[in-house]
């Protein structure tokens, strides 16, 4: 089976029913997306398929129809994505386990909404749980990323 992940074609030998997360982590060695719940209830495994966020623990790899982007695919060369830059500036992570998923959802939100309000952020991010309670920093970092994005015209 052939997938495109982070602009790279990859060949994997997977049962089509295997969750995309398993294929990424165990077969392709792409460990950014995390396993938290396996039932689309925590957001740790969030990746993008053709730019749209999906919970990769619950999407069968055989049903993937498009290019997959994981957090490893966000930087352009040595330049971090604006959302990653904002995350660094605001020092968002605590343990870090949920953060790859948080960032992927934030990227998706900012693709659609240039200047998200608190309500927009709540509406977009409530499926991404954080046991460490970094929510206020996530909110601040999304706003920071929105500003950065506008400034850079990214």
């Amino acid at each position: 089976m052939r997938l495109t992940v982070n602009n790279q074609p990859i060949e994997i030998d997977a049962d089509p029913d295997m969750p995309l997360l398993w294929a990424l982590r165990d077969l392709a060695g792409i460990k950014g997306p995390k396993f938290g719940c396996g039932i689309a209830a925590c957001g740790a495994c969030t990746v993008l398929v053709d730019g749209a966020p999906v919970r990769s623990c619950s999407l069968p790899v055989g049903a993937v129809d498009g290019d997959v982007t994981t957090i490893e695919g966000l930087p352009e060369g040595n330049t971090l994505h604006v959302v990653q830059q904002a995350w660094l500036e605001m020092q968002v992570p605590q343990c870090g386990y949920c953060q790859a998923g948080q960032i992927m959802s934030a990227v998706a939100l900012l693709e659609e909404v240039d200047e998200p309000s608190d309500a927009d952020i709540d509406d977009a991010m409530s499926g991404n749980l954080c046991r460490c309670g970094t929510y206020p920093k996530i909110r601040a970092a999304i706003k920071q990323a929105a500003e950065l994005k506008t400034k850079l015209g990214a």
């Binding site: 029913d17 039932i39 966020p53 999906v54 919970r55 619950s58 069968p60 939100l109 977009a124 499926g127």
Partner: peptide, 16 residues
């Protein structure tokens, strides 16, 4: 909503 469309979790078939 943006960032949290139904299709983030609800795909073409039921999760088993």
């Amino acid at each position: 909503n943006p960032g949290q469309r139904c299709a983030v979790c609800h795909f073409e078939a039921n999760s088993g």
